[in-house]
Every structure is written in C-alpha cells, then in structure tokens.
Amino acid sequence: MKKNILGIAELLTALLLTIGSVTFFKACGEHEGKFMACHWAQNAVTLIGIVLSASALLRILLKNTGIKTGLSIGVFLLSVSVIFIPNNAITLCMMDSMRCHTVFEPAVIAIASVLAALSGVDSVLGLIKAGKSNEA
C-alpha cells in the first residue's frame, strides 16, 4: 500500500479527469443537433483520460520497478500533453464567457497539472530507485 501511494493518487486523479470531462466539468452541450468545437476537445481529453487511468492501474498492479517507472514517465508525458488540448491543440467556443472556457478548460488544466506533478515525482523516485538497484 505504502509503495503504491503515488500510483493510487495517480489513478484517482486520472479517473477524476476521465469521469469529470464527461460529467461535472464537461464542455458546452450540443445546440440544435450540432456539436461545437469544444466537444471534440472534450472527447480528446476523455480518451487520453482513459489511457492515463489504464496506465496508472498497470503502474499499481505490476511488480517490476523498471516497468513501473516507465509507466509513470508515460503518465507524466501524457498528462502534460492534456494541459495543451483545450484551446491550444483543439479550439474551444468563440466567447470566453462560455462553459468550455470558464469550467472545462480550467478544470482540465488544474487536474492535469496535479497529475503531471504526481507522476513527475513518481518518475524521479522510480529512476533513483532503479539506479540504486542497478548499482547493487
């Protein structure tokens, strides 16, 4: 449990990103049967959220330190890339007073930043541990 505390925190944050992006901080809804630009940003975040959750789960379940560290590095890189999805990689709606700008974008940035920080620390600790076991 103690060994996996960072992994569990990563999994919970990745799940929050995935579930939140389609529920409580989702982007603007459909209008007259049409989806706006932010909908595709939301889909991208959800999809990457699923990949992040799966990686974080594997990071907890697998025993090999090297693989664990590799997965943490993957989670770190992916979570950093998620920060740039809303309004950079995929444009959001036109007005910055709309839900996708006021709720979706800041929530994604905040949660992805927390995930990046957690997985970043996890990666560094993993690399140090792997280095020590190689020396031994």
Binding site: C28, H31, A37, C93, M94, M95, S97
Partner: peptide, 10 residues
C-alpha cells in the same frame, strides 16, 4: 441570434 459555433448570444 446565436453566433456561429456558440450557443450564446453576442
């Protein structure tokens, strides 16, 4: 009226 790509008025 709702502007292009937005559900809000301008």
């Amino acid at each position: 009226a709702n502007a292009e790509c937005c559900t809000v008025q301008v």
